[in-house]
Every structure is written in C-alpha cells, then in structure tokens.
Design a protein around this nucleic acid. Sequence first.
DNA 1: AGCTAATCCTA
DNA 2: GTAGGATTAGCTA
Length: 996
Amino acid sequence: MKTGDHLFLVDGSGFIFRAFHAIPALNRKSDGLPVNAVSGFCNMLWKLLRDARNTDVGVTPTHLAVIFDYSSTTFRKEIYPLYKANRSAPPEDLIPQFGLIRHATRAFNLPCIETEGFEADDIIATYARAAEAIGADVTIVSSDKDLMQLVTPNVHMYDAMKDKQIGIPDVIEKWGVPPEKMIDLQAMTGDSTDNVPGIPGIGPKTAAQLLEEFGDLETLLARASEIKQVKRRENIVANADLARLSRQLVALRTDVPLELGLEELVLEKQDGPKLIAFLKAMEFTTLTRRVAETCDCDASAIEPAEVPVEWGATAHGPDLDPGVAEGQDAEAPKAATASAKPASASSADGARAMDLAAQRHEAFSGHKIDHASYTTIRTVENLKLWIAAARETGIVAFDTETTSLDPMQAELVGVSLAIQDNTQQPNANEIRAAYLPLAHKAGADDLFSDGVKLVENQVPMAEALALLKELLEDPSVLKVAQNLKYDYLVIKRHGITLRGFDDTMLISYVLEAGAGNHGMDALSERWLGHTPIAYKDVAGSGKSAVTFDYVDIDKATAYAAEDSDVTLRLWLTLKPRLAAAGLTRVYERLERPLVPVLAHMEERGITIDRQILSRLSGELAQKAASFEDEIYELAGERFNIGSPKQLGDILFGKMGLPGGSKTKTGQWSTSAQVLEDLAAQGEPLPRKIVDWRQLTKLKSTYTDALPSYVHPETKRVHTSYSLASTTTGRLSSSEPNLQNIPVRNAEGRKIRTAFISTPGHKLLSADYSQIELRVLAHVADIPQLRQAFAEGIDIHAMTASEMFGVPVEGMPSEVRRRAKAINFGIIYGISAFGLANQLSIERSEAGDYIKKYFERFPGIRDYMESTKAFARENGYVETIFGRRAHYPDIKSSNPSVRAFNERAAINAPIQGSAADIIRRAMVQIEPALAKSGLGEKVRMLLQVHDELIFEVEDEAVGVAMPVIVHTMENAALPALELKVPLKVDARAASNWDEAH
DNA sequence: AGCTAATCCTA
DNA sequence: GTAGGATTAGCTA
C-alpha cells in the first residue's frame, strides 16, 4: 500500500443490523430463509466495487476489507462487566444471516476479518490509522457514531444507506464537536444501547457545550467546581470516575494485532463464477443477472453453491397484520365512551355526546366496518364497474393516497372509493369500499437493493385517470371527501377539476367549531365509535417510515378503503344535521365554495427573491454575532442566549437584577416586556438581548426558512391554508405561514421586499380598514361609532374625544393612543388587567377607563353582557352570517377558565363576522373579475385575515383595482346590509412591502 | 423521535 | 384582553 491508495473498511456487523431493520423481512428465499440483510449487503458491495464513482464516495477502492465482531468477550467486558449487558438477543430472522454474510464476503473474494477479544470497531480503527500513516486515504463504510472519532482529513466515513459521505464538517454539524472530541463527548453522554454509563443529565448538547467551554473531559473534571448549574455540577463531580471509565469504553483501540497486513487487503480480481454460484443459492435473480453481464459468464451454466445455514431457531411464517381484525370493532362502544369529553365541566354535554356516539354506533352496528370486505381494483373492467355503481347511486366517497402531505409535492399512488350498496335493500347502510392502486412500487432506490419496480397488476395510471375524470368532473354525481382541498389539488395537478362535492371536515367544522378537532380519526371516534387504522401502522414511523407507494397493496387496501368507508359514513351522519341546525347556508356560502378558491391560491403560490433573503440573512448573522460578543462581555461568560432558562439565570441569578417575574412553571420570565423594563432602568444587557432576539428571530423564521419552501418546479412558495382550524372562522396558513410576515418595524419589513411579482406584473394589496371595529359598530349598534364611520373620521380620536372631552383638533398623540388601545381591548373582550398591561398603567386606572368607556358607549356593555348570556345559554355564539363558535367550557367552575371563555365568546362574533365578510369577498372576486374581462389578468394569491394580495398584469392594474375594492366593500351584500360602510385601501407595486 | 414551554411574528 | 404558527430548548420515551 502506498500514498494515493484508497482503503475501504466495511463495518460488516454494523451493516447487517442496519440493513436488517431497513429492508422489509418479506425478502425471503423460497424455502422461507430470511435473506433481507444479506441481499442488502450484496447489493451494497456490488455497487461499491462496480460504480463507487457514481456514489457519494466518488472513488473506487484499491484495498478493501470487511470487518466483523467476534464473540462477545472483549477487553471492554473485563474493565466493565456490565458493558453491553442490556443487549437482548438478536431477532430470530437475523441469526442465520450472520453466517451467510460471511459467506457472501468470501464469495466476493474479499478478506473477512475478525479478531477474538476485539470489536470490529477496534480493528477498523487500527487499519485506518495504519493506512493513514502510510499516506493512503480511508473510507469507513458505516454510519455508526462510535466510529466518528476516527474521522480526519484523510479518513472519511460513508453511510451506504443514505449514500452520504461523512467528513469533519458533518461530524461537527451533527454533534457540535470535531471528531477528536467525540470520545470525550461519548464518555459524558454514555450510550444506552451499549450500556456505557456516562454522566447522568448530560446529553449531546450539554456535552458539546461543556467541551466548547473547557476543551476536554479531564479539564472539565478538574475544573468542575466552576459550573454554575447546581445539579449539573453535582452530577459531574459525583460521576467523574464513571466518566473516565466510559471514556475507556468508547475510545477505540488502534493496537489490535492484525492477522492480515495492509498489503493483503489489496482488491483481488472478481471471481465471477464463484460469486454467481453464491447469488444463485440466495436466489438473488437481479443481481445474478447483473454480475453475469459484467463478468461475461453464462449464469445458467453455473450450479448454485452449497451454502450451509445455521438456523438459530425455527423459522416462522409471515406476521399477520396486527390490530386490524375484528377486535377493534368489538371495542367500539368503549371507544365512544372514552371520547366523551371527560374534562368538560358540563356533564350534560358529555352525556349527550355519549348518547349520540352510541346511537350512531347502533345505527351502523348491523354493518360494522369490515376490512375483509374491501376489494382491490386491479383491472380496467373492474374500475368501470365501480364507476358505473357510483353513477347509479349518485354519491361516492373518495380519497387519494399519495407520497406526501403537501398536495403540491404529492405524487398520486392510488384512489379509494366507497358507495352505498342499496341494490339489495333501499336505504340500507351497507357500504362497499375498494382501493385502486396505481403506482405502488417494490424494491428501493438506493445502494443496496435491486432497484425499483412498479408492482404488477395495477391499472395503468393514464387509463385510470381518464375514467375517473369523467366521474369526478360530473357535477351530477356528488363526491364526498374528508379535507377535500387536498384531494382537489392532487387531482388538479393531473388535469382533473373536481365538480360537485361535499367535505365532511367542513361539515363538522360548521356544526361544531370550537368543540374538538375535525380530523378524520377524531370524527370517526366521535360519531362512529370506530378507530381507523393508524397511518403509521401501514407506513411505519420515524426512520423506518416509507412513502405510501411502498406500502404493501393488501395493507394499503385496508387503510385506504377504510378512509373512504368512514368518510361516507360520516357524511351520512353529519350532512342531515346541517339542515337540522339551520347551518346549510353557512356551509354552502362560506365554506364549500372556498375550497376551489383556496386550492387555486395555493397552486399559484408567490415568487420570493432568494437573493434578497440570502443577503438579509448574511447581514442579520453579522449583526447578531457582534451582539453576541457584547452580550458575553457584559454577562462575563458565554452561554446560550437563546435559552430563556440560561438567560434568566444570568440576569436574575448571577447579575441579581431586580424586577424579575416568574412564568407559570416557576422559571424566570425573560419576555421582551421584562427586558424592556430592565433596559428602561439603565441596564445595558437587556436591550442587547432584545435586539439579538429580533435579529435571530428574523433570520431563523424568515430569511433562512422561507427559501426552503420554494417549490422545485414552480420556483414559487405555496402556503397551505386551513379552512377548519380556528374557532372563529378565520383561515390559518402554514408551511410556511404567510400570515405572520413582519411588517411593524423597518428591519422586519425588509423581509416583505423579497415577496415580488413576476415580470410584467404588480402585486396588488387590498385591505379592509378597521373591519372589526366596523363590525362592532354594526352588531352593538353604537350611534357615535356608526356616525364616525359614515363620516369617515378618525375613529380612535373620536373615542378619545368622547371619553376624555378633548377636541379632535390638536389632540395629543398619547391620548389617542390610549383610546386606540381601549378600542382594541373591547374587541378582545376587555379586562382591566389586560388594558393595564398594554398601556403600562395601574389596574385601577385601567378600570376607570373601562368604566368611563361604558358610560359613554352603553350599547357596548349591553352587547358584551348579552353575548355572554347567549353563550352560557347555548354553549356557542353566532356571527352576523350565522356561523357558530362553540365554547363548551364557558360554564367552568374555574373562574379564570370561565373568564377566558367569556372574553373569547365576546370576541368571536366580531372576529368571525369579519372573517365571514372576507370569505364572501374571496368567493365573489373571481366571478367579478371574470365579468370585467380580467379573468386571465388578475390572480388572487394570498389572504392575511383582512388583506388580499393579487398578482396583476401591469396594464390591468388600473381596471382591476376598482373592481377588487368594490367587490370587497360590498362583500356582505346581498345577504346583509351593514349599518356602517366598509372601507378598503389598495395599492400596487412590484413587492409586497411597497404594495401594503 | 415526539412532546411541552417560552418566545415572538401576524391580524 | 382575541385568533393563529414557527422556532428553539429541554425533557421523556
């Protein structure tokens, strides 16, 4: 071996465990022998030897060895008998594969190395250091953190599962310390799988922080008395010896006696026939073929090798899918009981909910949800039969299965359908459901498998979509789905525009906003007394999770068909209740028509300028760093400024600043309010903390996060709007939330300049002025407010003038500011406590203001009292359009819970009515634009509660603006004539900051 | 890996 | 004082 050579050290023992868990165990030989880990191992080796240059390693090896653990008595057990003592026996299916994997290594003509008394890691360490000393490069094929201590500029690791190289920066990124400090870090954190004790209470973060501060473990132990945190200090002092012992356990030995020298690891020529004989014995057909092609051998002429197998225990058949059998249905009545609001103070409500659930369950009890009754649609003929049946009954529940929760990224994998089968008996609640798999795959698209294949016997995607299109676009057949906006977008991206639909989530939301969530699982529990199969039970969770296209089709059928089945049952249960509660209009005017409107907005997205954000990010980072230096200087030590806990200890513990208050968990509060108060007393540090927080907030939440939401194909940011997650009727926005982009100060507003229009277009922002106060003036019917809005005078100045008797002309800004705070306070269900906080005045003074306000505007007090009474009486309040917001805890015996619910109930009709108005505007806007010939020139992109943002062709701005303003200002009509006018301000510019 | 608390951004 | 969502830290499983 010489300089420039490249030694690969494959951690065979590590690989076999990871491959075993990562690759589904259905991978068996025809005689039932499990070979999943061996298969992964062979594929990995083959790719590494054949096309390592196409992987993230980028080089082909000149030398290679596969290293294994040998027996269990190692030197570590001698120093610490408990080492690896909590290891349980390996899984039964893995045991025969230990031997096979060694056979595989030899079949590849590779050295298979194990040394008694040492672990594979020590052997790897010894070879790595030896090779490095000669000047060779080393790649350790493993992702085990125990080996990361070996990484140097010349020694890399390679994660074969993820095809990812691991170098010094990667170690630092993952663990916060460079490779040479990994030993100390692991000594402190310990390792529960190997039973390395470590120091209790110290995790990777703390360990990295301590190492940063003290340099290494010995220094830390020597200077432990300097650690401020009492518990931490005590732990470290008490466990110093344990830490030193742990260090011995995790430090790898580099002096293992080697049977084979480096020279002997040189890569031998492949022995084609020998390898093929082994692969044939394992029945790895794809790899056999590939090897035969590469080596130019005739595979059929080679006999499978005789490979002895050491079975650890008797093999068993494949597991049945757990938890999907009848057992759950038998449990259903109990589930219904458990879901009946146990925390609610109103036991009557609870009892009623229980009754309803029980009744529903009764109604369906003769027709239990039965996974065995579901069918899989495998042929075009069968699909046609289902579509015909759906047309026959006129109602079909459907659900799309995809690869992602993001409808803009999701790839369609399958569709489930459910219909009422009333061919035998009219009105029977018999439901038939089926799953149509379209793009299920097998295998894996990674280094260690045979590659991906489409599973056989699936209806071709294009053909299925063409058939479904006719059904889904036909308004005379009602399509029912849960959270339908998602499915709408997924199929829209396949050229299908859904027409004629109902959404069970939205029906539930209209019926019960504020009383529990409206997800399918919750609704199924609540109304059907049935717990659907959990998604993670079919697709796994955490690192073993797979996308739906890799779910076995039988399992997928049970899961997907059940979703449609449950959706149809929910629809049958909930839809009639809308009319019974008089809520049909709310659903049909304010909810359902918004689905396509929002779907289109999400689909359009908005352009952001990444350059602006990246420049801002750099500036913020610089400024934040200089603040950090000053903060450490003032504090006299380094600490995590972002940790309120550590910050509180510094400010109120170490520095002993006065005026600290505690949060509800007893921590020191370090809120901006508290820090501002300290700064006002002349303390320099708190001001800097406030500024630092602002900078890091902008950086992490906006400049750094937003670019990661740019869609790879559209190059735009597509937020997701939730129609059913607020109690009041507002929308919410997430991933990213575009309803909280900074606007209140100059630094933050720079973020808005990054939201830009496409060339040839402007962004047009139109927002309602004072919409909530106008709604208040309407619902509480306050003469002075109505008059002020009618005449267009400054509403806060008018309020101040009424309250304090100061003329509007030449009013001091402070007086107006107070009146403004009171006006907002009213909308929020005012309390003296809250107003006092807002204005930094005494509670008694705030109380006096409120008293005065009510004297001048008695109608407002009447409104607040009658709203509370209505809420107590009915358990909900209503907006001016009849939308309901439920407050089940309004009768709570806990005064603060009760008061909170009362304030929310006062606010809901105001906030909710305003939300209804803008919903109506959003529904009306597209037809209004189309009528003015602007359909193609104006696109609505965003909604921010009282603001709508459009992208408008340059030359259409002048025409579009009055149409938009007019539509928004008259959005309540014709349903309702408001007693005050609505006012909308609009501007257009090339970015959101200037348009707003 | 998944949860809660604290904080801070919006209307 | 109302209504949301995202990030980070720090803990538990």
